[in-house]
Amino acid sequence: MLPLHISAPEFSLFATPDQKLSLSELKGKRVILAFYPADWSVVCSDQMSLYNATLKFFHKYNAELVGISVDSKWCHMAFAKDRKFHFTLLADFNPKGAVSRLYDVYDDVEGECKRALYVLDENGIIRWSYLSPVGINPGADGILDALEEMNKK
């Protein structure tokens, strides 16, 4: 994992089949980067469905959630539609896993992202991070605790 209190590295990935999203476009908002291994797998979909249901709590803290995996933009589109997600999934697909590597959360053996969370402040500084065991859904309490802590300062 990257250390805290540094600027989160810039990236630009496909958010839809014809549109890219750059991290810098989210400046002014807090950003939750949720790296996860794969669309459709059981634990991931539970984790993303939970985050989908907790979006309103994230928004209360001016935070946007972005999911990132190595699946393609088309796969993401089908997954998001099927699960009725109201947040963006980014495709770290080509070159495969480049952004995950940049954030030190790429699993070379599986060829997937690890299950990892970063919370960035309004200026893109990393304020909290968590690497979850791959088979365990980390829940949303750690993210919300981090956002609450940021409000105190």
Binding site: D46, Q47, N137, G139, A140
Partner: peptide
């Protein structure tokens, strides 16, 4: 109830 669950770490 839901919010208390999220804050308590319920993940599913």
């Amino acid at each position: 109830d839901f919010e208390s669950g999220v804050r308590s770490g319920v993940n599913g």
